[in-house]
Nucleic acid binder design. Structure first.
Lengths: 211, 211
DNA sequence: CGAAATTTGTGAATATTATCACAAGGAATT
DNA sequence: AATTCCTTGTGATAATATTCACAAATTTCG
């Protein structure tokens, strides 16, 4: 159990398995095979089994996996069995969309602080929280002991707000700004590359003379 | 030039190089080395060179790459030198954020149609475009000859709207819904996994006993 | 209970991706 | 023009990731 070094890709897929397991569970099935999971995730069955074995032996030969047990196990492995307070930096359009994004709530990510540098926005309420000036972000995060931040500011503001968040004790950042944040070691940054994905699409379509 | 099989990852990074080149260009530099690019992108210099060579020989030994030339070349390779009309399905919070997302506009992606199935929303104007009933999406897309679609609906609606978009002639889909879309071969789907990224962050932080 | 049918977990084999290391090309300097 | 200094492009090597293939475990069925 708990192997030495788990591939990043396997961790990413864990999330996918969890999502699919939820669907299967809600459909009333109690067990599922690696091939069924693979089919639904668009992957190879051996890969599904290998991924799961990194975290423990969940399966029963001849039968497959217990859906609810596996779902619960993955939830726990990923640390999603408890609520996670989150700070949001940038209350623009994207930030506001994220604020009301059901997917985050469903998974226990609770946005507890919102920061912006626009005086127009500071002081206003959003989802029951007052938008604070980003100057005060460090201390507020420290007080509230928040460890996860989401950056949805323009690129120009991203690095400086990242620094403030980290100063306040943030250890992980979900970054929507299209820049490579420079952070001290020990801080985890996960980038969401909105434009890049669309550009990729453009590339593949152009290559096929579709665009 | 134009090698047989280009790694998906290299294509993704092309986008990153383009973004960095723009910054370097705006800062007034005319040439850049692979190590400078690598440094800024958080990559290995050899990888940068290998990536670029898939698409042509752009560099000069002893000097590096001509910033503007390379930027223009990548833009063209990715098919981003012309405007690309896009259809948006799902005018919820996320959809509205994407509508006003400057990054898309800057890169020439122009949202020309918006669809939703909520009668409350249908008929209303957004960014100068009338939100249409998603029932009519196929024909409208056909008329407007749109080839790229963005899906920002809830998961439950995603597959059915994807089918309609494809019926109307959409060849590439940027999918924000957390499900694996089933599409005919020849249709390209690029997924943006919002929750999965945040869950990954949760996993790594939990593992380090931070959460 | 025994045989047939599944399906896991996993070592071995492939395939893919990233890095190293260096010859060769070109610029800068003397 | 010769020398030095860079930096590219690339073959070789190393690291990662995926898939195959099968023994072992377990269920199901007769």
């Amino acid at each position: 159990m708990e192997s030495y070094k788990i591939p990043k890709r396997s961790v990413e897929r864990l999330s996918i398995y969890k999502r699919i397991l939820k669907v299967i569970m809600d459909a009333g099935f109690t067990t599922v095979s690696s091939s069924e999971l693979a089919e639904r995730a668009g992957l190879n069955p051996a890969q599904v089994r290998k991924d799961l074995v990194y975290f423990g032996q969940f399966g029963t030969p001849g039968m497959g996996y217990q859906v609810s047990t596996l779902h619960r196990a993955i939830t726990r492995i990923m640390g999603l069995h408890k609520k996670i307070p989150v700070a949001l930096a940038g209350a623009g359009n994207l930030g506001q969309a994220l604020l009301s994004y059901q997917g985050f709530k469903d998974r226990g990510f609770i946005i507890e602080s919102i920061f912006d540098n626009d005086p127009e926005k500071v002081g206003k309420m959003k989802n029951g929280i007052k938008i604070r000036n980003e100057k005060n972000s460090s201390s507020e995060i420290k007080d509230k002991k928040i460890k996860v931040g989401i950056i949805s500011t323009p690129s120009s503001a991203a690095q400086s707000i990242a620094n403030k968040l980290i100063e306040g004790g943030i250890k992980g950042i979900l970054n929507f700004a299209p820049i490579e944040l420079k952070v001290p070691s020990g801080i985890i940054v996960v980038n969401v590359a909105l434009c890049e994905k669309l550009e990729m699409l453009s590339y593949y379509l152009s290559k096929r003379k579709i665009l």
